[in-house]
């Protein structure tokens, strides 16, 4: 979706405000939300791309107004209700719950014991598949002019632009279809390099470049002459 999250190239957002000696978390609610996201996510109720879409799919002013981890809170609450894991009424009524203890006899998917192993191994999105790559380093490509209601990783600023394939990364899960169709549709992933002038016009730097990952469903060969 062409939401506020896809903000690359917008003007008017103001200065960047780095904070000196910034702590990792600014309050206990951030700590809990950070950890909860992993603990809940490990239940497998949704995939990470559905979750990203849940965070971005909301009114512009709400997105801009929330502190960062409140976006996570919104995404999790939305998916819990949307997937039928909890009702909106349960979530509202939970405000009155006293602090809870872990339910006895239930093995949760994320335990303290397995956290170190998960951090060590991660979850790669590299996939095995037979497909041959359709592009090679050096090929000129044209990004598609797509408008998807759901989630897409092709940002607005990079649509219908000429770029050059500069890296080939092998086969990865496709985040767009994973979010929108719960189908990973693994395909070759590349880095496409765009000149600053292709993206931002003739006043941009003559030498600067931007690198973006593109999946095969995001691109076509550049038309001859471009």
């Amino acid at each position: 979706m062409d939401g506020i999250h896809d903000c690359g190239g917008m003007d008017g957002h103001g200065p960047v405000l780095p904070e000196k000696n910034e702590p990792v978390f600014h309050g206990d609610w951030e700590r809990r939300m950070f950890g909860l996201n992993w603990a809940i996510g490990m239940n497998g109720f949704w995939n990470q791309d559905e979750y990203r879409h849940a965070m971005e799919n909301r009114p512009v002013l709400d997105y801009l107004g929330d502190p960062y981890y409140a976006k996570w809170l919104y995404g999790v609450e939305t998916l819990l209700v949307g997937k039928g894991i909890a009702t909106a009424a349960e979530i509202a009524e939970a405000r009155a719950l006293p602090p809870q203890k872990k339910v006895g006899g239930v093995e949760t998917p994320l335990t303290a014991e397995i956290v170190p192993q998960i951090i060590k191994d991660g979850f790669t999105f590299r996939r095995e598949a037979d497909a041959k790559p359709a592009y090679a380093v050096g090929d000129k490509i044209l990004t598609r002019n797509i408008f998807i209601k759901g989630h897409t990783r092709l940002p607005r600023y990079a649509r219908e632009k000429i770029g050059v394939i500069t890296q080939h990364h092998g086969i990865f899960s496709f985040n767009d279809s994973a979010a929108n169709e719960q189908d990973e549709r693994p395909q070759h992933l590349y880095t496409a390099t765009f000149t600053a002038r292709e993206l931002w016009g003739p006043e941009a730097s003559a030498i600067d470049k931007l690198n973006l990952n593109v999946w095969e469903e995001h691109i076509d060969p550049a038309p001859s002459g471009r």
Binding site: G27, R31, R32, F34, P67, E77, A86, R95, P99, Q100
Partner: peptide
């Protein structure tokens, strides 16, 4: 927001989806 995060944690623990010790551990890392 603070209240909603607490509510979420308590609801998820009550339903048996979350062990708060796992939350502590990942935060610690």
């Amino acid at each position: 927001i603070v209240v909603r995060v607490k509510a979420l944690e308590n609801l998820m623990i009550k339903k048996g989806f979350v062990d708060p010790a796992a939350v502590d551990e990942i935060v610690e890392h």
